[in-house]
Amino acid sequence: MRIVVTILAVAALASVPLWLRDPYLLNALITTGIFVIGAMSLNLLLGFTGQLSLGHIAFFGIGAYVSALTSLGFDAGLPGGFRLVHTPWPPVVGFVLAILAAGLCGYFVGLLSFRVRGAYFVIVTISFAEVVRLVALNWVELTQGPLALTNIPSIALPLPGFGELTLRTKMHNYYLVLVVALIAYLLIARLVRSHFGRAMRGLMENETLAVSVGIDVTRTLTIAAVISAAIAGAAGSLYAHYIRIIDPEVFAFINTVTMVIMVISGGKGSLAGPVVGGLIFGLLPVALRPVMAPEAQWIAYGGVLIAILFVLPRGIVPSLAQRFARRRGTTALAPVALTETGAKEPA
């Protein structure tokens, strides 16, 4: 049943470039797809461990910059008269390095913040994003600062025996994003259904009990942060090579907020939630553009978000799934998750 829905959804998404000829809409779908990948990575932390990364865009932006710089090359001065010189490498290498670099940052942020939980992680992630933004803004020799990195090459897929395929058209990029999104989705699905996913779930529901049966909090949360950050880095890399220009504005707080809205509206802790929420809030600007000034759009977003959560308090996917199950008389569905933290202190 679930697998049929998934296959139909994928087939529908895959068919879009075959009948949608409007480049503006296709462009909106590609950037939305990239942000959906970011939202899925955020959901891995927020929905499955309960940790809110309010600087999540940092991992996305680091992926974008690492990938762009790898494929553009650079020559930047270091203190002490040294120079950091790099000649351009293919963008696919940049994509891989983006994933690794973002994952590594996720590791350090996790290590710094998961000894103590709660607001700590939120604060560390916000600060981290701000620090990275300032570096991107001020290390002009490396990043061009506010002048932006331009002419970032498109991703080229090596095809053994046929040379390579440069993904220049919108249709190419659409399929590239779709494939990466699918891989990210399957990865997260496997992860949360595994033994490791149960450890995350246990920690979120009742941390005291979870550690008492041998679950290592710091390790579990750090691994989740690494994977989440790495996926966000992959999304950032796709963004850089599609838009082909990147500046420090990518680190803007509002971009994190957008991802959080996508996750919450679609339903945190559900696999399809960020996809549904992401499509709605990614495409909403397209629908609103003819009728509203860009500044007013944020107010509309707020309105839409409140309306969704008013009707479907757990987010679209979990709330609809619950109603569906109730109608069919199934009861084995969780009541509102995430609110029950269990006993914090052993009594």
Binding site: E205, N206, T208, L209, S212, A343, A347
Partner: peptide, 8 residues
């Protein structure tokens, strides 16, 4: 645990 403790 003394207080009931499960993954509710």
């Amino acid at each position: 645990f003394q207080r009931t403790s499960v993954f509710p």
